[in-house]
Amino acid sequence: MHFDSLAELWQMGVHGPWVWSAYGICVALIALNVVWAVHRGRRVRRDIRGLIRRQSLQEKQ
């Protein structure tokens, strides 16, 4: 590792706040993108299951 300790890695000389805030915000955004895509997939599957259920109920009546 280039740094001698984890504390030095955290401080990054004087640039710790810039580097870690950039990584924090942006990694959160990228993770949000993935979670959002997967979540929408689940919701659409649930909605289609709901459609099928409603349709089969109507057919029975």
Partner: peptide, 15 residues
């Protein structure tokens, strides 16, 4: 953590 720092920008270049 492992790449060397930049000779002018120091560690800020890691962005």
């Amino acid at each position: 953590a492992f790449a060397p720092p930049h000779h002018e920008q120091g560690n800020s270049y890691r962005i």
